[in-house]
Design a protein around this nucleic acid. Structure first.
Length: 127
DNA sequence: CGTGTGATTGTTGAT
DNA sequence: ATCAACAATCACACG
């Protein structure tokens, strides 16, 4: 948290890493110009991400020289589609549980706000 | 030195 | 119903 304005936004995208046949800039991330809630529950990883977590380990073992997620991501996505529903269901189940927990966290998060942490910057821990 | 970018799909909120 | 944004992660580029 610091130097965000100091460093300034870097819209410079050096694509020298990987050639993009077509750059479908899918989603740009507009920076929250407003404020971010420090205790706002973030979205839980999707089933795909859990698969990634497991896949990364395997990929690293077979390819210790694995560069980064970008390469793994593609490999994962390709394999993910080849996986049968039964195999994917395993990860869906995990994600589903996490989502339930996530929703619960949101409720508590709202409670804290109701507690009195509405807009004062007091660093009091209500834990 | 710090941070933004890119790539993957799934989930969710908003309109 | 449909779009857009964000979730983890890591090498690399830029100021």
């Amino acid at each position: 948290m610091k130097t965000r304005s100091q460093t300034g936004p870097k819209p410079l995208k050096t694509v020298a890493l990987a050639p993009r046949p077509s750059s479908p800039k899918r989603r740009l991330r507009p920076k929250p110009s407003g404020k971010g809630d420090p205790r706002a529950p973030k979205k839980p990883p999707t089933a795909f991400f859990y698969f990634l977590e497991d896949f990364r380990k395997t990929y690293k073992q077979e390819n210790p020289s694995a560069k980064t997620m970008r390469e793994i991501g593609k490999a994962c996505g390709e394999k993910w589609k080849t996986m049968t529903f039964e195999e994917r269901v395993k990860y869906y189940d995990i994600a589903t549980e996490k989502r339930a927990e996530f929703e619960k966290a949101v409720v508590e998060y709202n409670k804290k706000k109701d507690s009195g942490e509405m807009s004062e910057e007091s660093d009091v821990d209500y834990n």
